[in-house]
């Protein structure tokens, strides 16, 4: 599942592990937690080698996609579980546990819900309880496995913002797994993109979007169209016309140019790199998406301001204002 990879997580950061399903991101998270064992390699926390440590001693907080709350316990007992599970000598006094549970209930904005059972809560509330339960043991690192995966769109959005707030307030080192690019780009300090068990790129959301290291990363971070191009003299040209895209040094000959929909512009045929006819278009949130069919049948997606509307069959020219090539 996972190939050799090395990932440094900085203290206090919120790191998003992003990848399509089956990319190994959950496996990586479980290996960090100690729930799965790696065939080889090491897990270091700070300077300490945690590879041989059983899950109980790793001091991680793990939040599961489907909450995994203890159904037969109240919300307060769920949150206090980790503290109550400690050996008598290390267990805080009962009053202290109660106080910590109260603080955490305030933090997750569920004060007064302590006596309820998980079945009486909504999905978003359950996931907040799961987070409080994980935070209660003051973990060295908080691990979230698709934490919003089972929630509907609106709750997801609220919880994202709220998780970011909690992180900013507690400074807790956090790794979360997601297959949702928007979620990773919005929440993370840094994003680690995984594909087929390989770590493709690690960087801030801006870095991975502006300088994706591979076509895989580029494709996974959003829509793109592939255009046949030629690299010569440090420039990339399409159909004999130069584009603003610079070719990496040493790259010569036919290359694949990846263009985002918003890097294409509808223009008069004389100034165009590409030409075709409008196939369909739709408007959404002040923008319009136009599908253009090239003579060969190749479909190009263009994103533009919601200005002039074109009927299907209308001939158009497309100018390439930017794009990515990989050596």
């Amino acid at each position: 599942m996972l190939h050799d990879l090395s990932l440094d997580v900085r203290a206090g950061e919120l790191l998003g592990l992003l990848g399509p399903s089956g990319s190994g991101k959950t496996t990586l998270l479980r290996i960090i937690a100690g729930l799965d064992a790696p065939d080889r390699g090491r897990i270091l926390f700070g300077g300490d080698d945690a590879t041989g440590l059983p899950v109980q001693q790793r001091a991680v907080g793990f939040v599961f996609q489907h909450y995994a709350l203890f159904k037969h316990m109240t919300v307060a007992d769920n949150i206090a579980y980790g503290l109550n599970a400690r050996r008598r000598a290390e267990r805080p006094a009962r009053a202290e546990i109660k106080r910590r549970v109260g603080d955490l209930l305030d933090l997750i904005r569920l004060s007064g819900f302590g006596d309820r059972y998980p079945s009486q809560l909504s999905g978003g509330q359950r996931q907040r309880v799961a987070l409080a339960r994980a935070l209660a043991v003051e973990p060295r690192v908080l691990l979230l496995d698709e934490p919003f995966g089972a929630l509907d769109a609106q709750v997801r959005k609220d919880l994202r913002r709220w998780l970011r707030e909690i992180h900013d307030r507690t400074g807790q080192t956090t790794i979360f797994v997601t297959h949702d690019q928007d979620e990773a780009l919005e929440l993370s300090d840094r994003v680690a993109v995984l594909d087929k068990g390989r770590l493709e790129q690690v960087g801030t959301p801006d870095e991975v979007q502006e300088n994706p290291v591979s076509a895989t990363v580029l494709k996974f971070l959003g829509d793109s169209v592939e255009v046949e191009a030629i690299a010569e003299g440090g420039r990339v040209s399409v159909r004999g016309r130069e584009t603003p895209v610079a070719a990496p040094a040493g790259l010569l000959g036919p290359v694949k140019l990846y263009v985002r929909p918003w890097q294409l512009q509808l223009v008069e045929p004389e100034a165009a790199h590409l030409a075709g006819t409008v196939r369909s278009s739709y408007r959404s949130q002040g923008r319009q998406r136009i599908e253009v069919e090239e003579p060969g049948g190749h479909i190009l997606a263009v994103e533009d301001f919601d200005g002039v509307r074109y009927a299907a069959g209308h001939p158009v020219g497309l100018r390439i204002n930017g794009g990515y090539v990989f050596g």
Partner: peptide, 21 residues
């Protein structure tokens, strides 16, 4: 087994997780 896994990550021993979860 995710409830048991949750208990283990919270520091419970296997026997404690069995008994309480």
């Amino acid at each position: 087994s995710s409830e048991e896994e949750a208990a283990l990550t919270l520091g419970a021993s296997g026997w404690h997780a069995f008994r309480t979860v």
